[in-house]
Write a protein that binds this DNA or RNA. Structure first.
Ligand SMILES: [Mn+2]
Ligand SMILES: [Mn+2]
Ligand SMILES: [Mn+2]
Ligand SMILES: [Mn+2]
Lengths: 218, 218
DNA sequence: ATACATTTTTAGACTTCTCTAAAAATCATT
DNA sequence: AATGATTTTTAGAGAAGTCTAAAAATGTAT
């Protein structure tokens, strides 16, 4: 029971979209993410449901079953391993690797993935800081670092805070930052150590006072 | 105007089947090679013809156009480069690489192929001795070696002979060996230096007297 | 040249994935 | 609770690739 490229991409993106909310992923969100139409999503989601890879009830959105999740995580594993290879060994730039990895992630060979993993030295993080699950689908324990000290270019997520005043908490809330929020660190000013992050396609400025009080995944 | 995996496989196999005869490739030969039905071949060949990738006239078989040939050669290039990678760097065994390369050859990124080629050190031959065309589609000048001295496991082809008696010529003809015939060297006896080759799925024994008088591509 | 065998093509149908347009359900606002 | 906006689903159709069965063309052997 092998999956098509298309099915695999659906599963992967359902996985990524589910992480940000406990509800099912909406048809529209998925359609936008996959650059397709809502009606196509409905069709595919029904098929995945018939294959027991997702839980789906009309109008209620979609979530992954255990089996669907395993596949999704394995695609992510392959994607990130290939990105390590492309960047570390073939010398690709950070931006260029993604599209190629998007294709390579669908090459289906356990043998290939295990050997690639070994060749790369069993990396735990891809070049953007994304954690790489092992062959059993287990993600590495994320290391924590202050946002103030994180490398530029990393995609990361909020792991905790070191300041608990109401003022700080409501400030974070207004910025759209909470535990688990994922973003990318884009810039850090030499002048005042303020940082620029990318969150949901929007660019946001954070002062050093904010950055030094947030723990993020490394 | 990108090609699908399926179209690429058709082009590659038309290329390989045309090398052994100056006539067009027959529908049936292609169907057998691609493990599909003759009717499917007819359909696809019409489509490739509409795209100007093959020359096709009903009942006359099919040949590649210049453009079709370029694509075919590029697929072969990618296939063989990936086989070098899989075998030399990931430690795959000789038999295992082919199926994976069959998929990897369709990943479409000039950048990827050029960087992989560089990473591998611009190899001219794959691990089976298959010549790897360069980025312009030019195959390396094949080195010549006596069959007597060729490495076991190599796929190769007849490049010339060093004995021109009628007896030898008719012996070769009976064995099915002529200039350009492709085969794989399987075994060499320590006892009498006779060799065993695989030609068109059949295994054939050649005495040392024969092997030492045949030049093959290295 | 005729008959028979083989190869190739056509006709029609099926699967997978996609789309547009319209209908149905849900959500949001008063 | 009613209205209107938004989201989601359905209905119907199209492109790509495949198949089976039947028709047409070609090849072969007397
Ligand atoms: Mn990526
Ligand atoms: Mn993908
Ligand atoms: Mn091969
Ligand atoms: Mn292939």
């Amino acid at each position: 029971m092998a999956q098509s490229f298309t099915e695999e991409n659906y599963l992967k993106h359902i996985y990524k979209l589910s992480k940000n909310s406990d509800k099912g992923v909406s048809t529209n969100a998925l359609a936008e993410r996959l650059e397709t139409k809502a009606s196509s999503v409905t069709d595919m989601v029904k098929k995945l449901s018939a294959k027991k890879l997702v839980n789906y009830q009309k109008y209620q959105g979609v979530t992954l079953t255990k089996k669907g999740q395993q596949i999704a995580v394995d695609i992510i594993r392959k994607h990130r391993l290939w990105e390590v290879f492309l960047q570390k060994h073939l010398g690709f730039g950070g931006e260029e690797v993604h599209d190629v990895a998007e294709e390579l992630e669908h090459i289906n060979s356990t043998e290939l993935v295990e050997r690639l993993d070994k060749f790369l030295g069993y990396p735990k993080y891809d070049p953007h800081g994304g954690p790489i699950p092992d062959s059993k689908g287990v993600f590495p324990e994320p290391k924590r670092v202050k946002l103030d000290e994180l490398e530029l270019g990393r995609s990361t997520k909020v792991m905790g805070i070191t300041e608990h005043s109401d003022a700080f908490l409501s400030h974070l809330k207004k910025l759209g930052l909470e535990l688990g929020t994922e973003f990318i660190l884009k810039e850090r000013s030499d002048f005042d150590r303020s940082v620029e992050i990318e969150l949901n396609e929007k660019t946001i400025q954070l002062s050093h006072d904010v950055a030094k009080n947030i723990f993020v995944a490394y």
